[in-house]
Amino acid sequence: MTDAATLFDLLLAGSVIALAIASLTVRDMFAAIVLFVIFGLLSALAWVRLSAPDVALAEAAIGTGVTGALLLKTLHHLRYVTGKLGEGQARDLTPIATVPAGVIWANAAFCGMITLGLALAFLGAPQAGPGFDSLVAEAMPASGVDHPVTAVLLNFRAYDTLMEVVVLLAAVIAVWQIERGLSDAPAPALGEVWQGFARLTLPAIVVVGTYLLWKGSEAPGGAFQGGAVLAAVGLLLLLSRIYVPRPAHRGLARWAFVLGTGAFAGVALLVSGGGRVAFEYPAQHAYSLILLIEGLVTISIAVTLAALFHGREPVAAPAPEGRNDT
């Protein structure tokens, strides 16, 4: 039995490495992105094998799903800008200046040295050294939730998570500014089969995403995984032009972006005082407070990820020629 499992591990590890190489070497950029998505899903599978289902869910939903959508959207835009929209393959989209072979070899040697160092460090590291397991296990009863990863994310290491939400906020601000006034590539038109699919699945995705969020307090799942699934609804609505962002919606969008950060920081400050520091939730309210934060953070994550996909800020459309600012 152990041998079968080891064989599976070796096969999976081999596929992951092969896909990583393939996604960097295949010439068609579309194929590269598809290979990358498969790579991400197989990595998630490997993490399930390493008993890390939370990480696997987050990688599959955010690291692979949303990232893949972002990459494909960018590819579509590049094809549109370079006038290669109708072509079967996506090659040579960004201008390529040849790099001298010597530089490439020097880089490769440099990478090889770093890798060698990392491998030596990894192999030389003490096996199963002391981790934080016992500390977390000790503190679990006070955390307010039953799932260790959620306890770490929202209670023990809540500062990290707060900063993570801030990073997401910063990203959406940057993307809105960078792409200000950029014209949009025409959306691929989707027919009635797609509409039937959307009608059937979108409501169910909303419920399933929220279920993932709720389940996070006692089992794998939580704000990031649930938020990514909810963001998928936004992505599909944007892709099919069922929802088109308008300048008038910006205010609401901004509120949604800061809702998570605001609620997180607000709760942290409110519970402090009276001998407690920030994020030291009163024990009897810890569960409700964590769920409250998670719920609001999920809304922010979902809206922010969808906004990152959509890109530019929806400003009032100028006259077609007025955009020509070169």
Partner: peptide, 15 residues
């Protein structure tokens, strides 16, 4: 969640 999911009926094209 249930309300939001069901409310998507109002934004979808009519069928």
């Amino acid at each position: 969640a249930i309300l939001l999911g069901a409310a998507l009926v109002f934004v979808m094209p009519v069928a």
